[in-house]
Design a binder for these strands. Sequence first.
DNA 1: AATACAATACTACACATGTAGTCCAAAGTT
DNA 2: AACTTTGGACTACATGTGTAGTATTGTATT
Lengths: 128, 128
Amino acid sequence: MFTIKEIPKISEAEWSIMKVLWEKSPLTSTEIIQALKEVTSWSPKTIHTLISRLVKKEAIGEKKESRLKSFFPLVTEEECKSTETKSFLKKVYSGSLQMFIANFVKDEKLSQNEIEELKDILDGKKDS
Amino acid sequence: MFTIKEIPKISEAEWSIMKVLWEKSPLTSTEIIQALKEVTSWSPKTIHTLISRLVKKEAIGEKKESRLKSFFPLVTEEECKSTETKSFLKKVYSGSLQMFIANFVKDEKLSQNEIEELKDILDGKKDS
DNA sequence: AATACAATACTACACATGTAGTCCAAAGTT
DNA sequence: AACTTTGGACTACATGTGTAGTATTGTATT
């Protein structure tokens, strides 16, 4: 039997941790704290708390090979992005990517350049 | 002096109320409850609570002309969508629409038709 | 070995959110 | 007029989140 993996809800602050671990893993808490030092001003204690919560949610796993625990993602970045995107589109744009893009073009005033770039991305020529 | 309007944070459930009021306003709480009956299964009490919270956040206003209060948005749909979109892009895609679209194309497997439609939208031919 | 430091575990605490329930007063119903 | 219903104010309560602090214990240092 397979257990279907639920994508846990990852809060704003927790996303920062996940990003670090998706970038490189496994990492010890100290390493995570180091990496985040450049991006946030959280106390190490706060980061420890966030890590524990992610472990509890089973978004990341821990292993203890040496005497230090290290942590690694249990969910992929793609899964999380996809889940997050769907819930955002549902909440704000009735689930419609079209509506999202249309509004974005209208309200955020994309430049012609950006529009061309996006069209290229849509065509799969996604260098830029 | 102008007071700069802060866009308050609007929770998932509160968005449902806002959508109703953006659609048509002012409405009394009873009318809001009616409108939401078709979409949710919330108790009227729950809806009253959500309405009060939105008033407190100054996302909606209230006026009492007849004996019943009626409610109306104080923030526009565009403002809220824009705020929400930015915070989503920041959290998940480092603020980059390009990255978002690229990932979406890759992971959500858009059909050729959808891609063409999006390109039309980007070009401003947004009937469809 | 004793001490200091640091990793992990456990606790704290206010505010947000989902989801209602209670109480009171005004309005409509019999 | 008494009774019922309902809007609105206030209260409730578990869980999530941001943001740490304390306690314990094993390791590193002198």
